[in-house]
């Protein structure tokens, strides 16, 4: 169990990170087997922290627990154990008015702007809603003025306020979702695959917008994505997850230039290189099969059923190992990276 400040914290150990997640576990009830109830181990003992104004990228395959973490922070799902602090305040224990205030300070943007926008509501009403809920500003006229400002901020013309979701393109809908997320003046925005359903050209528009907004408003982001290149582009720190567990965390530069965990190495090697000549000639680590069921995760290192470096000891406890300052990996063979000779044995 780790209880030091999680990776992701800046150099200054004294400062309080904006978001501090410690030993978070989320389990969902699974199917009943006879008299025993099984559990989906969606998130197991996850700790990380994010400094104000920074972006933490959360990356991993489908089912690795990324969205569940975002949902736990925004209290859309109840965590089984662990703590979440925003600016030093306990998010999970808060009740009543302080809880509402904390909810205001954490906003969320989802993957599919079509599904997450109410089809019967105009863009203006959608953006205004959080202000109505939190009773911000005095009166509707002022809120509508703020709606216009927010639409401006995300690069939409003010007339968009009168439009319904089906009258907007995917990129425009995602801009509306972002404007809505900013309406309650949050500190932290959880972006759950916020660009995944968009075309490459529109993804670029939205990523550029998000970075501009961060610079202007000092926002802190949790950027959840399975797109490694997008995460590299957006994040200061990165957390790599597999089957609900931390695999590796570090500053983006460190982690992307020297990935230490076999899983991170395999993930990166699966990303196609846009240069066809490079792509054809490079050696790749191909992971076989699929991740195991979260109902019955392997003992020890959960990656061991697919890991090219797995040995018997991997079924035992896996300690956190330090790769370099602010760069950690959970692997007993950290550092023995998949060298070219080793790699060759696993390329297909």
């Amino acid at each position: 169990m780790r209880s030091e400040p999680g990776p992701g914290t800046g150099q200054d150990a004294q400062s309080v990170p904006l978001l501090d997640v410690r030993n978070l576990c989320v389990r969902f009830p699974g199917p009943r087997e006879g008299r025993h109830r099984s559990w989906v181990h969606a998130v197991e003992d996850v700790s990380f922290a994010v400094d104000r104004g920074q972006t933490l990228g959360l990356v991993g395959e489908s089912g690795s627990g990324k969205s569940t973490i975002g949902n736990a922070l925004t209290r859309l799902v109840p965590p089984t154990s662990g703590t979440v602090h925003l600016d030093g305040q306990d998010v999970l224990a808060a009740r009543g008015a302080p809880a509402r205030e904390l909810r205001r300070r954490i906003a969320m943007v989802f993957q599919d702007p079509y599904a997450s926008l109410d089809p019967r509501r105009t863009a203006g009403a959608t953006v205004r809603e959080p202000m109505d809920v939190h009773r911000m500003l005095s009166g509707r006229a002022e809120r509508n003025r703020r709606v216009a400002e927010l639409l401006d901020l995300v690069g939409l013309v003010r007339e968009t306020a009168a439009r319904y979701p089906h009258e907007l393109s995917g990129g425009q809908r995602q801009r509306v979702s972002i404007a809505r997320a900013l309406a309650a003046d949050p500190d932290l925005v959880v972006l759950d695959e916020a660009t995944a359903s968009l075309d490459v050209s529109v993804q670029a528009q939205i990523m550029n917008l998000l970075r501009e907004l961060q610079g202007e408003l000092g926002l802190t982001y949790l950027f959840v994505s399975h797109d490694l290149a997008a995460v590299e582009h957006m994040s200061h720190h990165v957390v790599v997850m597999y089957l609900g567990r931390l695999m590796e965390t570090g500053t983006t530069d460190h982690l992307y230039t020297r990935p230490a965990h076999p899983y991170t190495q395999a993930l990166m090697s699966a990303v196609p290189d846009p240069d066809p000549a490079t792509e054809r000639n490079r050696e790749r680590i191909l992971l076989g099969g699929d991740p195991p069921s979260p109902l019955d995760p392997p003992s020890g290192c959960v990656f061991r059923t697919r890991c090219p470096l797995a040995v018997d000891e991997c079924a035992g406890p896996v300690p956190q190992t330090t790769v370099s300052a602010n760069h950690f990996a959970w692997c007993i063979r950290t550092g023995e990276s998949l060298s070219p000779e080793r790699l060759r044995r696993f390329v297909h």
Binding site: S169, A204, M207, A229, E232, H233, P274
Partner: peptide
């Protein structure tokens, strides 16, 4: 435009060259 819009692993840039409009 398509080539410039995609972030590329290991080649960070400050800005992606988005294609404006729809």
């Amino acid at each position: 435009g398509l080539l410039g819009a995609r972030p590329v692993l290991g080649r960070r840039r400050d800005q992606l060259t988005a294609i404006p409009g729809t």
